[in-house]
């Protein structure tokens, strides 16, 4: 049986939503789904090289004043850092991470080497749309 496919427009660059996206993606990967992630605008900043080690540089989408409580709880619960979810998902299933070329430029990332090594390529919106047309599930986060 052919794997089900999920396409995600990952707009967010905030640590709370990136964590939620990571949980979703890893669950889909455990279910053997093929997953294409298209990183848009705000999201691309979070994937710039070195950002995986700098959670302090990412804001919150909601309840900004509860940031420390939120991150402290995740740590206490032994939840992996947001980028680790993406890494583990890539180990478990066919997961591709594409940076939208416009988004990259917004944050000064023009080439693949400007981004974390888990990023597969830099693409245009056409590829994103084609992937979505072929997918069973679409998410915009």
């Amino acid at each position: 049986m052919e794997n089900k496919k999920m396409s995600i427009g990952l707009f967010t660059g905030s640590i709370d939503k990136l964590t939620a996206a990571g949980v979703l993606i890893s669950g889909a990967a455990a279910d053997d789904m093929d997953i294409d992630i298209f990183v848009l605008l705000q999201g691309a900043r979070a994937f710039l090289k070195g950002m995986g080690d700098k959670p302090e540089k990412l804001g919150m989408a909601e309840n900004a004043d509860l940031r420390e409580e939120f991150l402290g709880s995740l740590k206490e619960l032994n939840v992996m850092p947001w980028m680790e979810f993406f890494r583990v998902s890539k180990e478990l299933a066919n997961v591709k991470i594409y940076i939208c070329s416009l988004a990259g430029k917004v944050w000064g990332g023009e080439k693949l080497e400007d981004f974390e090594d888990l990023v597969d390529d830099i693409t245009g919106i056409g590829e994103c749309i084609t992937s979505m047309q072929e997918s069973d599930i679409h998410l915009f986060i």
Partner: peptide, 14 residues
């Protein structure tokens, strides 16, 4: 036992 959802599922899959 040391992980919250989705940790056990990911561990099982691995």
């Amino acid at each position: 036992r040391g992980t919250a959802c989705p940790g056990p599922l990911l561990a099982a899959k691995k």
